[in-house]
């Protein structure tokens, strides 16, 4: 790995730190390699280890330091400690186990989402089926009217019950679906705002 590669990879690994931090660190190592001289460059890059390892040290120290970072966060201790927590999480994510772990988390979230949607779908189908069956029962009732008055009444009654229950289930499903989607929207929104901050 040459100097340019090392520095650009280091910059990439630090991308979640404030820009001033990134520039300071990358500037330091650029200068460091220049001061070491081109003849020592390769050896020093080897001794430094991977850009990932160098970045971990910088991120770790940044997360531990209590001093406010930059003018943007000074005076807002809650915000800066939340930021610190976020940086620690990101540092953990940057480690080698992070990718499989992140994939697992995504898959689990996706599976949960699918399950919820499947349950909602089942509710909707049940509602519709009940209404359809109810209507069918009403037709049977009309037909039965000509020879079995009792059966006709029974069929009409249970048909109406089925339609009523079906409509109630359908309404409940619509409400559940709506609140599920607004909930998802809020969660995603909150995540995006945190990312942008």
């Amino acid at each position: 790995m040459n100097k340019t590669q090392f520095l650009s990879e280091l910059r990439g690994k630090l991308v979640n730190l404030p820009e001033s931090e990134v520039n300071s660190a990358v500037g330091y190592y650029e200068e460091y390699l220049l001061d070491a001289g081109p003849e020592n460059e390769e050896q020093i890059i080897e001794e430094l280890g991977s850009p990932n390892a160098v970045a971990s040290k910088i991120i770790g120290e940044f997360a531990l330091s209590d001093a406010p970072v930059g003018a943007a966060t000074s005076g807002k201790t809650i915000e800066s400690s939340a930021k610190t927590l976020w940086v620690v999480i990101l540092a953990v994510l940057a480690s080698p186990i992070a990718l499989p772990l992140a994939i697992a988390v995504v898959v689990i979230v996706f599976a949960l989402l699918i399950s919820v949607l499947a349950v909602l779908f089942a509710f909707a189908v049940t509602g519709v089926a009940l209404v359809v069956a109810g209507i069918a029962a009403l037709f049977v009732a009309v037909w039965a009217l000509f020879f079995e008055f009792g059966t006709a009444l029974w069929m009409a009654g249970s048909g109406l019950v089925a339609i009523g229950v079906g409509i109630l289930i359908a309404q409940a499903t619509v409400l559940l679906t709506q609140s599920f989607f607004t909930g998802m929207q809020k969660m995603l929104g909150a995540l995006l705002i945190r990312k942008a901050a």
Partner: peptide, 24 residues
């Protein structure tokens, strides 16, 4: 930075990447 690392390394065992986070 480089000078500081050299001077430190002449006395104690510190790696090339140790000093920057401390200095910062």
């Amino acid at each position: 930075g480089y000078e500081l690392t050299q001077r430190a390394q002449s006395v104690i065992d510190v790696s090339e990447s140790t000093l920057y986070p401390v200095l910062r």
